[in-house]
């Protein structure tokens, strides 16, 4: 009996063609995902939230042994340098005692001036403390993953994230008990800032390195090296006057600044819940 070789080969060929198209199909889906991300529709953020909901607890579990080791190391270091630290704190305490009375007097004076000028204060902000459980600062993106626990109901995307040095980023996605932060050094980050000294405005743009660019400064801007840039509060997305970066180079055509935080010191951060949409009472009054 003659073997049907032609049919056999055809079947194999069809399967091979389908296989090649399968990979091409996946490529097309990936390309569509990028394009859809650019348009920013809800389905993409839902997918991101879903994946983060699963992956973030796993990362957290993986970090627990490292956290324990780090805690032990810190405790030992603290015990070793306890006398020096104590001495330093005593000295700082005596200096702060001297400043305390002066600060109270200035606060009272400030309150009186504000009343005289009918100054409108920025709304009171609530802050939440969160622990960094994962970080990612490379050529392609700069982000952090935070454990926010039960505060997830009160934390929204866009809230400012700060540490002792100043602004470090903004909340990107909240999923379950975790939140992802886009750092100010990320290529997608654009922060409206103002110079602390000259009050010249601009937009601080990240580029995935420690050097950020200040764009759209005024023509006759008086910006100099080592000037501190703070948040301007423009647009209402961030509270004003949070230190962001220090000017490294103020050239004629380019102004570069470096962030005030160091990636290695990001352990505990503070999330500032700044929402300037009016409350019910104010909204009624405005009406």
């Amino acid at each position: 009996m003659k073997r049907q070789r032609v049919l056999f080969l055809k079947e194999n060929y069809v399967l091979r063609v389908l296989k090649s198209f399968f990979l091409a199909g996946l490529f097309i889906i990936a390309l569509l995902l990028i394009l859809v991300h650019k348009i920013d529709i809800t389905i993409v953020s839902s997918v991101s939230q879903g994946v983060m909901y699963v992956s973030a607890p796993l990362i957290h579990i993986a970090t627990l042994p490292a956290e324990g080791l780090s805690y032990g190391y810190k405790k030992i270091a603290e015990i070793m340098y306890i006398y020096e630290e104590n001495e330093r704190l005593r000295q700082e305490n005596s200096e702060l005692y001297l400043l305390k009375d002066r600060l109270r007097a200035l606060q009272t004076e400030n309150r009186i001036f504000k009343k005289l000028l009918h100054h409108i204060d920025i709304p009171q902000t609530i802050s939440y403390t969160a622990r960094v459980i994962a970080e990612n600062n490379n050529a392609f993106s700069n982000s952090l993953l935070l454990y926010i626990g039960n505060a997830s109901d009160f934390i929204k995307s866009g809230y400012a994230v700060v540490n002792a040095s100043g602004l470090i980023g903004r909340i990107d996605i909240v999923s379950g008990k975790y939140a992802r932060v886009t750092l100010i050094t990320d290529i997608n980050s654009k922060i409206p800032v103002v110079s602390q000294k000259s009050r010249d405005r601009g937009i601080l743009v990240g580029n995935n390195t420690r050097k950020m660019n200040l764009i759209f400064p005024p023509l006759m801007a008086e910006l100099h090296k080592d000037d501190i840039l703070v948040t301007s509060g423009s647009g209402g997305g961030l509270p004003p006057d949070i230190p962001v970066a220090k000017i490294k180079r103020a050239g004629v055509d380019t102004i570069t600044a470096i962030p005030l935080f160091s990636p290695s010191e990001l352990e505990i951060v503070k999330i500032i819940a700044y929402d300037i949409s009016p409350d019910e009472k104010t909204a009624k009054e405005l009406e």
Partner: peptide, 10 residues
Amino acid sequence: DVMSANPLGI
């Protein structure tokens, strides 16, 4: 992509 905060698809 989700873990490294890259745009989905990169």
